[in-house]
């Protein structure tokens, strides 16, 4: 397979700018702080009355602490990178030429998301040594680490696709960035809507309304960490009884397949966002075109 030209170019260009170096530095610094804090808590706890007294066993908690901090940073950075990608090309006046080449709108969008995700994965790989501590001494299996990397990838692609969609409908990068965070909350909030409606309508069970949470990346990660750390689903524990939720929801929980279904749903949403971005980027799908207000030429 041929490497997408945009990915190659973006990596080339960003490797030469100081932004990559500073980004990596900042990222590692934040993770290091999270690491130190976690270590402190772990030490205190293992010494306390109820602690195991064995600091090595407690190392396993490094995983959720660092894992979650990492996810938060990624959820924050990726949309910023992709939101400024297409609008950035527009601002730099390089986008028209790109559109006249043989690149299809979808491969442009896909290339932009991929290049952001690849850069994010650089950061993530840099954090692996710290993460590995909880695997080596904490007793977590390597498959967990692999699965974790997959979930990171999923989150990066998902938030990247929200960013790229906003980038495709905005002319200014800054608007696109703001809009993608608004979109984040909209997507997030919408997943609670069915549950809210159900309670407003006077039901006192959740029914199948929790299924909307399949599209909620937050719920996905909570469930994911819950299962990884305890082997049990978030909801099937004492929190809810069988009659409180609908049969399908319960089945997903009981079988521990919620995360997989949720991952699938989020992936579908991701592809949808990218397709919409490709649609918006294609000049043949809008009659507007470039707005006036271009520079006056001196002649």
């Amino acid at each position: 397979m041929r490497i997408n030209p945009i990915v190659k170019k973006d990596l080339q260009v960003s490797a030469r700018s100081m932004r990559l170096a500073w980004g990596l530095f900042g990222y590692e610094a934040i993770l290091a702080i999270a690491f130190l804090l976690a270590m402190m808590v772990i030490r205190e706890e293992s010494r306390s009355l109820y602690g195991s007294g064995n600091i090595y066993n407690s190392m396993v908690y490094l995983f959720p602490v660092i894992g979650i901090s990492q996810l938060c940073i990624i959820a924050l950075i990726t949309p910023i990178i992709t939101a400024s990608s297409i609008s950035g090309e527009k601002e730099r006046q390089t986008f028209d030429v790109m559109l006249t080449t043989a690149m299809s709108p979808f491969s442009i969008v896909f290339g932009k998301v991929t290049s952001a995700v690849v850069r994010i994965m650089f950061y993530v790989l840099g954090s692996l040594p710290i993460m590995a501590l909880s695997f080596i001494v904490g007793g977590l299996g390597w498959s967990t680490l692999f699965l974790y990397l997959l979930t990171v990838l999923l989150l990066a692609v998902f938030s990247g696709s929200i960013g790229i969609f906003c980038s495709s409908i905005c002319r200014k990068s800054i608007t696109a960035v703001i809009l993608s965070f608004v979109f984040y909350f909209v997507v997030y909030g919408m997943t609670f809507l069915p549950l809210l409606l159900r309670f407003i309508l006077g039901y006192n069970d959740a029914g199948e309304s929790l299924l909307a949470l399949l599209w909620n990346p937050g719920a996905f990660f909570e469930e994911y960490f819950m299962i990884t750390m305890t082997g049990e689903s978030l909801i099937s524990t004492e929190m809810l009884r069988k009659d409180d939720v609908g049969a399908i929801t319960y089945w997903f929980m009981e079988r521990n397949i919620w995360v997989y279904v949720s991952a699938g749903c989020i992936l579908v949403l991701t592809i949808l966002f990218m397709l919409m971005a490709a649609w918006k980027v294609n000049p043949m799908h809008s009659s507007g075109g470039r707005k006036p207000g271009k520079k006056k030429k001196e002649n």
Partner: peptide, 17 residues
């Protein structure tokens, strides 16, 4: 698109390339 080479009136270039 393959049949056309286009030089726009205003265009930009990338930094660091």
């Amino acid at each position: 698109k393959r049949m056309i080479g286009y030089v726009p009136d205003f265009f930009g270039v990338y930094d660091n390339l």
